[in-house]
Design a protein around this nucleic acid. Structure first.
Lengths: 217, 217
DNA sequence: ACAGTTATTATGTGCAGACATAAAAACTTG
DNA sequence: CAAGTTTTTATGTCTGCACATAATAACTGT
């Protein structure tokens, strides 16, 4: 890492093989392998079999950010958390959701719009659609004690998911719900999760103005 | 992973030790160790010495997203890229930058606002401040062939960085630069990078309306 | 000259065994 | 019984070796 950051090994340059490095540093090849693998994961190296290891031409650091559990995020700021389920119905979702979840337009999904409060003020408007075929047990849940987000975490782990971050102007409806002015800039997260090619849930998170997401790289 | 997603091992539950798992799966402990370490990195397991390994109570998947190199991002979409340096001056930055970069308010920094175009249309307005004390060579660079972002990637690797994502309404100035309407929602990335406790650069990226950042989890 | 085959090689992945380390558990002592 | 000490234990990390695999390089025959 020092040699990369101090340009002893320049971007794009081929670095010595594992065996050579092991000898130079006086350790086993497995140790070198692990170190190089970590640096490759971090985006600092490009490795190819037989091709050797070279410093990434664009040493793109990867930011990792946790998918937040809203309640914990709010409680972590030291303010009280509250949660309200705004509706509960089974109906056909809009086309955008059908497409995101890869279900036919005639599929009935469970619609659970909800509002999370931090310190009594609206914090996050969550517009969630759940594929009941993937988690049939959810139909018996009332969500009085626990919110949909955490229920799903406990009962329906996913194998993969798409996540999309964007900015949008608050619609009149969103402005009313989040108690802000229409057209204010809102941070949006759209997330769809899957379990073995079956979509589990698709959710649009609209954070109240002023929200920001931090990360370290 | 199957046992976690199918709740054979429930959240919070202590799973067998490495030695037991190695015996059960008929492999070496090192192999089990590597598998468990990967799952812990992914956020599915919590591990502690002596304490053992347990399924994360909130199996928070971590989204990893690359810090984008704007030119590559645009060219990756198959459209031509262009870049314009809007200004170049050495002056005292606003207080917010001084605070973010941890320099005194009398420090002179290199200010390099720039505009990136995708397919001839404004794509990203980049308001960058550079600590010339950290990268003195930059004073001799003209940025005619290469933009500041890529110059820094080639010449000044950082050891760590803070990154912040948010949404903001376009100011009149930003609207004019990005050729959009004032008050439109803009996706913002604020990033400050450091090299051994010395700030290198702080940049605010304002993406044109419609931009979104994707990731997989 | 060229297509097809074979050899080489750097990384990928695995094994068995060893010692290090942190934290919990058990034990001692005033 | 509380405070301090020792023991135990599960993970952390390393060594040295072996074989797998993919991609390149070298070779071959027409």
């Amino acid at each position: 890492m020092r040699r990369i950051s101090e340009r002893v090994w320049a971007p794009g340059e081929l670095i010595p093989g594992e065996v050579d490095l092991a000898q130079e540093f006086g350790c086993a090849r497995a140790t070198v392998n692990r170190a190089l693998r970590q640096l490759a994961e971090a985006g600092l190296l490009d490795r190819r079999r037989k091709g050797g290891t070279r410093v990434a031409r664009y040493p793109v650091r990867k930011a990792t950010l946790d998918i937040p559990v809203t309640r914990l995020e709010i409680e972590g700021r030291g303010v009280p958390y509250r949660h309200t389920l705004l509706n509960r119905e089974i109906c056909c979702p809009p086309d955008s959701i059908c497409e995101a979840m890869d279900v036919s337009q005639t599929t009935q999904l469970l619609h659970l719009p909800a509002l999370h409060f931090a310190d009594g003020k609206p914090f996050l408007y969550e517009d969630r659609w759940i594929n009941t075929a993937a988690v049939p047990e959810i139909q018996d849940e009332i969500f009085s004690e626990i919110n949909a987000n955490e229920w799903l975490i406990e009962h329906a782990l996913f194998s993969r998911g798409d996540i999309r971050f964007s900015a949008a102007n608050a619609t009149k409806k969103e402005a009313k719900i989040l108690q802000c002015e229409a057209e204010q800039a809102i941070f949006i997260i759209d997330r769809t999760t899957w379990n073995k090619d079956q979509s589990v849930t698709s959710v649009r998170l609209a954070y109240a103005p002023g929200f920001h997401m931090r990360s370290q790289i």
